[in-house]
Structure formats: C-alpha cells, structure tokens
Amino acid sequence: MAERKSRKAPAAKKAKPKARARAAVAKRPAPKRAGAKKAMSRKAVAPAARGLTPSQTVGPYFAYALTPAKYRLKPIIADDLVTPDAEGERIRIEGRVLDADGKPVSDALIEIWQADGKGRYPAAGSARSNAAFKGFGRAASNGDGRYAFATVKPGPVPGPNRTMQAPHVSVSVLARGVLKRLHTRIYFDGEPGNARDPILALVPASRRATLIAKRAEATGAMPCYVLDIRLQGSGETVFFAS
C-alpha cells in the first residue's frame, strides 16, 4: 500500500482545512448500501485514494477496434451523430489533422462530445438507446489527415458563474505519438456568443482563431464547418489543461 501513503502525504502537507476534511472523509469506511454486502464478502474494498492509471498512446493500430467499419467488429460509436430524434440544424464538421511540418496525420482518432441544438447534454448516467441522440462521435483521419462528422449544431450551454457558453463541441485528439489525449474545442464562426464565451476569454486573442470553424461554401445539402487541428508549430491549435 505504498501508493496510498505517497498520495496522502501531499494532502497533509498543504494542510488546508478543506483538504484535511476530505482526507478524513476518504478514510471513512464505505457507506452500507444494498448489494454492497456481496462484494464486501468477496474482498473488502474500502474507498481510499488511489494513484491514477497513466495514459499511453492509442498507437497506429486502433482502427479495427475503435473505428471498425472496415473490419469485422460492429461499430457502436461512429462519425454520424444524427439520430431521428436529434434536435438542431444538420451540419458537417470536417478538417485535417496536421503535424509540426504541416504533414497530414493519417492515423489520428478524433472524438467529439456535444449538446444538441437546444443546448442539452444527455442527462448524466443516461444510457440512451442508439436511436436517441448520444452527443458523442468518433472518426479516424484518412490518408490526407482528414476527419469528418455528421451532426447537429449544438446550442449554447451554461458556463461557470451564470455565464453562457457559445455553441461548441468538445474534442479529444488521440494518435500515434500523442502520449496523452489532447483536449480542445470547436466553436462556430459567426456566433454572437463567441465574444462572451468564458472559455474563449481564457485563450490569448491571437490564438482564438485556432478554435473557430469556418462555414464553407455550401456544396451539398448540409452546411459544412471546417477546422484543421495543428498539433504543433505555426497556427498550433489551442489545447486545454482540464
């Protein structure tokens, strides 16, 4: 249990009353609840601070498991988020993933998480059927580094301190050479809320454009928003510590 000791130490060192109270709570045995008995009888597992499992790269070979349309496994998460009940304007979001030299990253995994057109996330813990709007999608980049999603344009969602956040999509970027998931967002050009968005406000003004997708000239039936993701170098995308 060396790891438990090592995690407790820094909390005690800071000696903030709140932290101490938390540590005390953590030491308390698990509250009794229905179903707990069975588990406890097999092995006593009391809540206690544990060290996080560290991240590793997704590597180059994830496609047959995570985006397996070409392979045998049936995909359960796809690049088309549009369900019959999805409320909002149907749109495409697309772009390229590029490395420091501007070369396409052809083995990236892009995941998006978003609210629907009315700014609603599925309620926490709701395991919706696959016919209901999930708000989550996954796409692998192709040989040109290109990714694309079909989805609905999200509405504004509440932010901290009674602010409103402009419509946005949360994005995870995973790839060979990316040791831990990169977190960014896609905003939409021309949204009046962008100017007041509490997260964009934290980003240096000169770098905000790296988060704002531009509306492309309509070529198909659906409006299309375009944003490239640059992992490093000129025009590097803003990534978040969250």
Binding site: A100, V105, W113, Y121, P160, S170, L182, V238, A241, S242
Partner: peptide, 23 residues
C-alpha cells in the same frame, strides 16, 4: 512533431467537461 509546444490553457470544469456519453 506531434506534441504541442504552446502552453496548455487551463480551463474550469463546465457542464461540457462534467458530462459524458454512456455506453
């Protein structure tokens, strides 16, 4: 060539970060 060089921007945990899909 695939790691960001610019500092990460620290953001608060909003509804967008505190929710997630359930599969």
């Amino acid at each position: 060539t695939r790691s960001p060089k610019q500092p990460l921007v620290v953001i608060p945990h909003t509804l967008s970060e505190l929710t997630g899909p359930v599969y």
